[in-house]
Computed example of a mutant assay.
Amino acid sequence: MIEFINVEKRYGKDVLALQDINLSIEQGEFVAIIGLSGAGKSTLLRCINRMHDITGGTLLVDNIEVAQLKGKGVRKLRRRIGMIFQSFNLVTRTTVLKNVLVSFIPDLPAWRKITGIFSKEHKIRALTALDQVGILDKAYVRVDQLSGGQQQRVALARTIAQNPAIILADEPIASLDPVTSKQVMDDFKKINKDMQISVIMNIHHVEVALEYADRIIGIRTGEIVYDGHASEVTPEILDYIYNGKLDEIQDEFEEKEKEAYV
């Protein structure tokens, strides 16, 4: 499904964000990418859907070389790859349903794009996606009336409505409290198992990554330093991935979670 072969990513001449990345991810896997801030986690994730271009090596998705795609090819790739952001990226002054329907716009004929009229089939698919993440009852509620966790579930529904093969999630629970984070992660796990959608998640919460992901990829200064099953991750491995700073990072996140309750 996804294969990195000696991939490199540079920003300008001096910043080497990724180096010698060799990685294969099969359909249906739940993969968590962990490491310090600035280690290259988000860069690796965003190379998959061409939000960032690699500067060396080969990146394949379904045996198609991503770097060679242009125009329609890139758009077609992105239709197969859903993206979930920490900031939700929703239109807050309109309804939940309309936010999910947005996922169909790229495939609509021009007259539907102009009029904003969606077919019955599109509406059924959107409502089904909302049901799959447990917020069907919020379909006609304005997004700005929802909690942060509910908004993230709207973003997830919008993504699965486009029927992707892959979901990329960039810190999807970073701004959520622990209870809400569990609800959102349960949704990701359910979608991964029930729909066989590959989930590749960049995440700071190590304990959450170990609980939900099948596979852990540890990145340190742009290199993969661990790739294995979540059950095989030891304190020594985490210490190496985080360069001895894991306890410090965990304390920082605990403080942020306390603030989420205020």
Rank of each mutant, 00 (worst) to 15 (best):
E121L: 08
E259P: 00
T43C: 11
I200P: 11
D186I: 05
R78Y: 07
K256V: 02
D53W: 03
A32C: 08
M185S: 11
L146A: 10
V7D: 12
K13V: 11
K190E: 09
V96E: 01
D239Y: 02
L246M: 04
K245Q: 15
I84L: 15
M185H: 06
T115F: 13
D187T: 02
D194N: 15
E29Q: 14
I191Q: 08
S231F: 04
R153Y: 07
I249C: 01
I167V: 14
G244R: 08
V96G: 05
L59D: 02
D131A: 14
A169K: 04
I219Q: 07
H52L: 03
V74I: 15
D14R: 13
I135L: 09
R220G: 01
N6T: 12
L69R: 10
G149C: 04
K13S: 15
L127A: 06
F118Y: 15
L16C: 04
I21F: 09
P178W: 01
E121T: 14
G82I: 07
G228Q: 12
N163F: 02
I25V: 15
K123R: 11
K189P: 04
R46Q: 14
P172V: 09
V66N: 09
R80V: 01
D131F: 00
E248S: 14
Q150E: 15
T55N: 03
Y11G: 07
A129Q: 07
G40D: 04
N202H: 04
A169D: 10
Q132I: 00
A67H: 12
K76S: 14
R112H: 13
I241W: 09
G57H: 13
V154K: 07
N192D: 12
S181P: 03
A39P: 05
E257P: 00
V199P: 05
Q250L: 15
V7N: 01
K256N: 03
R112D: 10
E3W: 01
F4T: 08
K41Y: 11
Q196D: 14
K70R: 15
T221E: 14
L90W: 11
L60M: 15
R142V: 10
G12A: 10
I167Y: 04
E223A: 15
R46E: 13
I124G: 00
L60P: 00
V233Y: 12
G134Y: 04
A169S: 12
I237W: 12
A155N: 05
I105W: 08
V61T: 06
D107K: 14
K258Y: 00
T92Q: 11
D227H: 03
G148Q: 03
I117E: 02
G228W: 13
Q152N: 09
L44A: 08
I5A: 02
S147N: 03
G134C: 06
L45Q: 06
F88L: 08
I54C: 02
E248M: 07
S119M: 06
T128E: 12
R46L: 09
G218P: 02
R80G: 08
E252C: 03
V143P: 06
E257Q: 13
K120A: 13
P106H: 12
I166M: 05
V143G: 08
R215G: 03
K245G: 00
M1F: 10
K113Y: 01
V91H: 03
N22G: 07
Y11A: 05
I124L: 11
E171Q: 08
I197D: 09
D14K: 14
G40W: 02
Q86I: 00
